[in-house]
Design a protein around this nucleic acid. Structure first.
Lengths: 183, 183
DNA sequence: TTAAACGTTAAATATATTTTTAATAAACTT
DNA sequence: AAGTTTATTAAAAATATATTTAACGTTTAA
């Protein structure tokens, strides 16, 4: 291999590494560990990888790769791929960022809406009990009402978040915000 | 204080605690520690609090409250409030979830776009150099082109994310997804 | 049916993060 | 200006998380 060929290969690697670094650095947003982030970013430039290739590339243990892959699978940033012939499992990074965005945020936001809405409903029932209770003092009733109204107001947000999820899932949001808008 | 008054007060506290628990539990999404999450959720039902009130309420040290408050201020979920007369600093939770949503996600997404776009631009320049290099073998050129195109494609996503941020910041998104839509 | 290859689980180690106690600095009162 | 209150920083301790080595179970090939 000639000098300049070698130099070109290195320059390509450098170019990839710049992007790998940036992706990995911003992936804390997705709640993954730095090594899972690194792994995803590395896989982003590969067709598919086995656990052994990952451990060689990142110089880490196989169980570590195994857990990172699983975490990435949970948020759908990595998918298992079928490779006939090979006994080794192969995995591929999800390269469509729109899909990653959709899966991750919809999953998280739905969880947030569900948990909080359920808690709010229960809390509001309790507060209504207190308000209806004939022996309650005016002070207590006023207090209960105050919190009831605060919670009622917050539901507007959770309903909106739910609508946002729906419009992302259905793709309707792209009618409002097209994917291919020009710079 | 009568028996039933006491019971009502407790029931109100219980109601609040249900919501506090739910909010705190889903706040890992915002990248804060469990205790910062707990603090925010507690403050959500208070007008304002001093560091000493926080430490009493959560039974933790004052420096711990201090750091949690700062973290929450960074993502605009807590604001310093001015209270004349008192030497103690007072803080209030941002109770408008729409505002919290906007500040947090826009901040994060903008960082993601900026970092990655910059890395992509640099990487693409490198790849163009390799492609133009007359001594490059066809294989190398093909490789460089492949990565160049992959990066070019990903820019569509980052531009979209930037548009999303802009439409949230400007409030235009609420024309598409109104806040007060009925269930 | 045995041995090798592969992935996962379990236990131990290492590392990072959170929390506290102690010390310092800043702001206010008298 | 001295003394007190308050918040922050620094160092230490405690806790939680990530990583590795070792062991296990399963599959496949010989």
């Amino acid at each position: 291999m000639s000098e300049s060929t070698e130099r070109s290969r290195m320059k390509i690697e450098e170019a990839k590494d710049k992007v790998i670094g940036a992706i990995a650095e911003t992936m804390d947003l997705y709640g993954v560990t730095p090594s899972a982030a690194n792994l995803y970013a590395t896989m982003y430039f590969k067709d598919q990888m086995t656990l052994d290739e990952m451990r060689t590339e990142l110089d880490m243990s196989k169980p570590s790769m195994s857990t990172s892959v699983r975490k990435l699978q949970e948020i759908a940033m990595v998918k298992k791929t079928f490779t006939r012939g090979s006994r080794k499992h192969t995995y591929a990074a999800e390269k469509n960022f729109f899909r990653s965005f959709m899966v991750f945020y919809c999953q998280m936001w739905e969880r947030e809406v569900k948990m909080n809405m359920e808690a709010i409903e229960e809390a509001q029932e309790d507060l209504i009990d207190v308000i209806k209770e004939t022996t309650s003092t005016p002070e207590i009733v006023a207090d209960a009402k105050k919190y009831y109204d605060q919670l009622e107001g917050s539901k507007t947000y959770y309903r909106w978040l739910d609508d946002l999820v729906a419009s992302i899932r259905s793709g309707k949001i792209f009618e409002f915000l097209p994917k291919d808008q020009q710079e």
